[in-house]
Simulated assay, not measured.
Amino acid sequence: MKNILVLCTGNSCRSQMAHGYLAHFANPDTVKIYSAGVETHGVNPLAVAIMKEDGVDISKHTSNNVDEYFDIPFDYVITVCDHAKERCPFFPTQAVKLHHNFPDPSKVKGSTMEVIESFREVRGMIKEYCHDFIIKNELD
């Protein structure tokens, strides 16, 4: 079993979406996905809605702190924002650390439609990254 942790600042949007897509694309018999934040902000309802549009249900996800997972031997730790990368704790494993800074859609100011469109754009970026990661690492 391969263990993958997706780490973000608040485990609210980007890490939750990546968690959803990695679980969607990966073989559940051989891969376990976790997500966490260096803080916890709760799962963003708009992230849940935007993922549901694409057929991925993250409504039962919880916002977890990275400290909860120190005893898990991760194979990969993927940071999805620069802040989390800078604050990424040491894991006592040989985990491969990867980083991709995705824009934070929850920080977008504008009309409701502009915010929703930002979430959709970031969702598309995360979906592509996660799909490519699973294929490249033969985890499907």
Rank of each mutant, 00 (worst) to 15 (best):
M1R: 12
M1W: 13
N3L: 08
I4P: 08
V6H: 08
V6D: 10
L7I: 02
S12N: 03
S12V: 04
R14E: 03
S15A: 15
M17R: 01
M17V: 01
M17K: 02
A18V: 04
L22S: 08
A23W: 04
H24A: 02
A26V: 08
N27R: 09
N27T: 14
N27V: 05
P28S: 10
D29M: 12
D29R: 09
T30K: 04
K32W: 00
Y34H: 01
Y34Q: 01
A36W: 01
A36S: 12
G37Y: 03
E39K: 11
T40G: 09
H41M: 05
V43W: 06
V43M: 04
N44E: 04
N44F: 02
A47Q: 07
V48E: 14
V48N: 14
K52L: 13
D54T: 12
D54P: 06
G55T: 06
G55H: 06
D57R: 11
D57K: 13
I58T: 03
S59V: 07
S59G: 11
S63M: 09
N64I: 10
N65G: 09
Y69K: 11
Y69D: 02
F70E: 02
D71A: 06
I72R: 06
P73M: 13
D75F: 09
V77T: 14
V80H: 10
C81L: 15
D82H: 15
H83S: 14
E86P: 02
E86D: 14
P89H: 03
F91W: 00
Q94W: 10
A95C: 12
A95G: 11
V96E: 13
V96C: 12
K97D: 05
L98W: 04
L98D: 15
N101Y: 05
P103L: 06
D104Q: 03
P105Y: 04
P105Q: 02
K107R: 13
K107N: 05
K107D: 07
V108Q: 14
K109W: 14
K109P: 02
G110N: 06
G110D: 00
M113K: 13
M113N: 14
V115S: 07
I116T: 05
E117I: 00
S118C: 12
F119R: 01
R120V: 07
E121V: 02
E121A: 09
V122N: 01
R123D: 03
E128M: 15
Y129P: 01
Y129T: 05
C130H: 00
D132A: 11
F133N: 09
F133G: 05
F133I: 10
F133K: 09
K136V: 07
L139E: 12
D140F: 15
